[in-house]
Design a protein around this nucleic acid. Structure first.
Lengths: 139, 139
DNA sequence: TTACAAATAGCAAGTACCTACTAAAAAGTA
DNA sequence: TACTTTTTAGTAGGTACTTGCTATTTGTAA
């Protein structure tokens, strides 16, 4: 993207990262580019159960800023992971759901969950934050 | 971490992200925290084949800065993913290899590779960078 | 007319992340 | 002494990513 256009429009995450060079057809890099946002997997996990309106997502994921939520949704839409359907009503209604590509994330995420769980149980939660008393771990 | 100690020492990635709140025992978050660095999976994939000296890694991965390379290695070591063995020689020799936790990354990464490949083939490489002529895609 | 709900966008400020460059240790060799 | 090889650390600067706050649209209800 040009340095001149300082304008901050939401882009496809793929596209945003696609100018870094010829490494971009690396499958892992692709996955990280498309799904690597701080909240994307969290949002997707909510959509595994079915489609949701924007407001529902907001209520289900209060730790995400509104700004971030739409931004992530917008990127996921541009990258073909979620589908956005607008109903022509007056208090507007927008429903988000997973595309086929989005559905395919589920087994992949299962692998992440699996590794993370193994790590947590095997290392006994945070590995050696020796500086903190153990009691503080669960804060 | 205290705002006062501006000192920039390498921390465990787990530890660095562990103060964000009670979400941290989420397995996915854990996985992303530990393995989410820009180069970590790339480094690990190099170690799947066996142990490597620092210099070998540097040569095999020229796109990574030396600084970043040791930093990522150090974090991975602190998080228990790689093992670091120092040989008491005069031009120093240090070998890095995967721990058991590190070995377990391989199947997980396979899932990432799989998703990324599916995405690339199904969407036909970069999805709609309509602003660029198709020829430019392979730059 | 004023107020409201639902969804979304923009900007400024802050934080985290990466890179480039410089430099240190250690012990043998020229 | 000066110089090499191998591994590692520090610092400054830049870029990318997140957050907080404010604002817009559009019918309908008060």
């Amino acid at each position: 993207m040009s340095k001149l256009t300082k304008q901050q429009t939401v882009e496809s995450a793929w596209q945003r990262n696609a100018e870094l060079g010829p490494f971009d057809f690396c499958p892992v890099r692709t996955t990280l580019n498309v799904l690597g946002g701080k909240w994307k997997l969290l949002v997707l996990s909510t959509l595994f159960e079915g489609s949701r309106r924007y407001g529902e997502l907001r209520r289900l994921l209060p730790e995400i800023t509104e700004k971030m939520l739409i931004q992530e949704l917008r990127e996921l839409e541009l990258d073909g992971i979620v589908q956005r359907v607008v109903y022509q009503q007056v208090p507007p209604k927008v429903e988000y759901s997973l595309t086929e590509q989005g559905q395919r994330v589920q087994p992949m995420m299962a692998a992440l969950v699996n590794w993370g769980q193994g790590y947590l149980t095997r290392t006994g939660a945070p590995p050696l934050p020796a500086s903190l008393p153990p009691a503080q771990r669960n804060r």
